[in-house]
Write a protein that binds this DNA or RNA. Structure first.
Length: 415
DNA sequence: TCTGGGGTCCTAGGACCC
DNA sequence: TCTGGGGTCCTAGGACCC
């Protein structure tokens, strides 16, 4: 049976959420109506555009570009700082509402998801009507707009949702591919990025339709197996299921941070690694996983990045063990240049209910008890409630990485 | 004080095995 | 005594996504 797939995407997500929240808390200016962006903190070297309003887009401001250059494009640009807890709450509220229409939802990112609407027509009506009802409800009850793309697979639903914005429902059924998708520039095809697009253009493929009708062997010769995937996408061929367990089947967990200054000594670098270990290990334990692979990445002052990883004999989840492995990797890899950014990523995840106990590590029980006690206290009283002494007066954050930095007051009620 | 942070998947090459 | 071929596992890096 032909499936019915929805792709739901929040328009300018961070900016819309910020705008909706501010309107509901007494502000009169809607950020969506003026050139405005959500931007990181320049003092701590996080100064990039995270989301932009449609008026800001008209000035040529790009997501991801430096605030310095964005300001040059628009002198009157409004810049507001991000509030990630708010955005997660808004995302969660939307997902909760969507679950009323189908249980089969794949969360794709904080502002995007797929929904399998197959077989739901009897309850909520034809797809386009249901999608419009959902779109209106989100706007009315949550205060922000979404685009909904409808088709028979995830790729077409996602591409369909991009056709007209904002606050629109669009279909891109297989019989509409030729008219709606093939005229698009090749860059618009999902998975054609800044490296692939020029390669395709070099051989005369400038539109999605030209790729669809090109010789697949030729494309494969140039792009290897991703070329075949792209050729299938251009022809609307994509078979993957809406996977409602994508979150729990997570392959890895990582935290990284750009430090507000360049680090040029080992002791400071290790403290950063320790604070990253604190956050990444806590997330690992919260997910009830152990990790078999630890990887450390470094970005230099000159923006050159490199990484090292290590597979362990046993999967681990303790903060101090992860830190120990990370610091060994650091010592093996650091090339001595000033460090701008560091990250720890854990992969090779296993269920943690069958932790293999090492005979050589009698402290295991104690470590687990300590980690679990600290997790509990931090969850209840905040990440600053228990701090390792080496961070006191160090000027460094004791727990870092991740977008949640409880530096600003918590929201008590959301929307 | 220009360039964040969190992910996924793929590939190439080396080690090692039969 | 001139070196095939298939396979797995591991690591580093790249490409792409939001």
């Amino acid at each position: 049976m032909e499936r019915v797939i929805f792709h739901i995407d929040v328009n300018s997500a961070y900016l819309s959420w910020e705008a909706a929240y501010r309107l509901q808390h007494g502000e009169t200016q809607d950020l969506r109506d003026i050139p405005s962006i959500v931007g990181g903190d320049e003092k701590s070297r996080h100064g990039i555009v995270l989301a932009r309003s449609i008026p800001a887009k008209k000035y040529g401001i790009l997501t991801g570009e430096a605030l310095v250059t964005a300001r040059k494009k628009c002198a009157t640009l409004n810049i507001v700082p991000p509030r990630y807890e708010l955005y997660m709450a808004c995302s969660g509220a939307m997902i909760d509402m969507l679950r009323e229409y189908s249980p089969k939802i794949q969360i794709f990112s904080i502002d995007e998801c797929f929904m399998d609407y197959t077989g739901m027509e009897e309850m909520y009506g034809p797809p386009v009507e249901a999608a419009n009802a959902i779109r209106e409800r989100i706007k009315k009850e949550l205060g922000f707009t979404v685009n909904i793309g409808i088709s028979t697979n995830k790729l077409l639903a996602k591409m369909g949702g991009e056709l007209k914005k904002p606050d629109k429902v669009c279909t891109l059924f297989p019989w509409e591919i030729k008219d709606k998708m093939w005229p698009l520039p090749i860059e618009e095809l999902y998975m054609v990025g800044r490296r692939t697009a020029p390669k395709l253009r070099r051989i005369g493929i400038t539109t999605v339709g030209q790729l669809a009708n090109a010789d697949v062997g030729l494309v494969k010769a140039m792009l290897k197996s991703p070329g075949v995937v792209l050729w299938n996408f251009a022809n609307g061929i994509e078979m993957s299921d809406v996977n409602e367990n994508a979150i729990t089947e997570m392959k890895g967990i990582g935290n990284s941070t750009t430090i507000s200054f360049d680090v040029d000594d080992r002791a400071t670098a290790l403290k950063i690694l320790l604070s990253l270990s604190e956050s990444v290990a806590a997330r690992l334990r919260q997910a009830r996983r152990c990790a078999e692979v630890v990887s450390v990445s470094i970005r230099n002052f000159d923006l050159v990045s490199y990484s090292h990883q290590m597979k362990l004999c046993t999967a681990i989840d303790s903060t101090i063990q992860i830190y120990y492995v990370a610091s060994r990797l650091f010592d093996q890899m650091w090339r001595g240049q000033p460090i701008r950014h560091m990250g720890i990523r854990l992969s090779g995840l296993k269920e943690n209910d069958c932790v293999q106990l090492s005979f050589f590590d009698g402290d295991n029980e104690k470590k687990r008890a300590l980690d679990s006690a600290i997790d509990g206290i931090r969850k209840k009283y905040g990440s600053r409630s228990v701090v390792r002494s080496c961070f006191v007066n160090s000027g460094l954050k004791p727990v870092t990485g991740g977008v949640i930095e409880d530096d600003y007051q918590l929201m008590t009620s959301i929307l």
